[in-house]
Amino acid sequence: MSDFELLPPADMSHMISTREGPLHFQDVGTGQPVLFIHSFGPQPGVTAWMIFHRVLREISTSRRCIALDMPNFGLSGPIVYDEPFHDVVVRSVLSLMDHLDLDEVPVVGTSMGATVALDLAITAPHRVSGLVVGSCHASTGGDPYLLGPFPSEVQRLYDEAQLHPTDLTHTVRLLKALVYDETVVTEAMVSAIQAFRDSRLGHWRAVSQSTSRAHSNLSALSSIGIPMRIIHGRFDRMVPFEQALMLMSYVRHADVTLLNQCGHWPAFERPVAFSSIVEEWLDSNHW
């Protein structure tokens, strides 16, 4: 996986101003629009392009793919908040959809982006036609685990990395724990992410000054009636795959795909399989 890319080409990169601060997004391809919301990781060094660029290059051959950097990630933000973080991102998504004149779209989210997608479908169900989610909790602050420890190993490493944002050692430990195959965490990838973090410490300060209030969405999950697919990595050390089964138990029409030899970032680590599943799901629902 030597084709690591952190930021998109200039012609795919766009910025808008919103109530939630500057919002950066990528817009590539033509056809039916699909919205992508990216994963959790070291802030602000995880971007939508980094997580999804291999997927976007495949799916954009037949569809319009829009992927945003969540506030305080990538080129979006910085912003200080005191509320459930996923609610902040939901408003950002709706602002972006309004800007692009998109009334309703299927949403592909993974990790933190999947929690946002679920929150969006609960908050504004008329704006979401379908969901691909996974590697996620349903709720801000997390959901109870039956088997795995809480907080998870990766959550602890993330907290340590946030305390030491310029320390390369903590960034490397976090990145290697987010994937199954540690060899994908190359020197070039680490250098690019750390340099980006070092250059945007305002994002780190905004997160440090913010409070994400816990809020459970579990009781609302059964209200989701739109098509939904769940994709989860078998070796996810951030959100154990039991959470995929939990989501399926609340949304009974949702199918689960468990990707072997995959950690917390399926779209990054298994892009061919991820793209194939998403395309099949989009085709089957005539989007």
Rank of each mutant, 00 (worst) to 15 (best):
D236A: 00
R213K: 12
V105T: 14
D69K: 03
L168Q: 14
L118P: 04
H203C: 10
G233W: 03
Q26L: 03
L259Y: 06
K176V: 09
S216V: 03
E269R: 07
M97A: 09
V128N: 11
T211D: 10
S13W: 11
T169Q: 07
S276E: 15
D181C: 08
A48L: 05
C136L: 04
I224T: 05
H253N: 08
L218V: 11
N285K: 14
A161S: 11
H203Y: 04
M50C: 04
H137T: 06
F274Y: 15
V108S: 06
G263H: 08
F274S: 02
H137Y: 15
G130Q: 12
L131S: 08
V108D: 03
S2L: 14
E83C: 06
F196M: 00
H286Y: 13
I231S: 01
S210Y: 04
I230K: 05
M238W: 01
L23F: 08
P84W: 00
R270F: 10
I37L: 14
P266H: 07
W265M: 13
L23Q: 08
G74E: 02
F85G: 02
G134C: 07
S111I: 02
L282W: 11
S249H: 15
G21K: 01
D283Q: 14
T18S: 15
V272D: 15
H126D: 15
L218C: 06
H14C: 07
R237D: 10
E242G: 13
T18L: 11
V107K: 04
E187T: 12
V93S: 03
T61P: 03
L247F: 15
S13V: 11
G202Q: 11
A220N: 06
S284M: 12
R213F: 04
L201C: 06
R173N: 13
L96A: 07
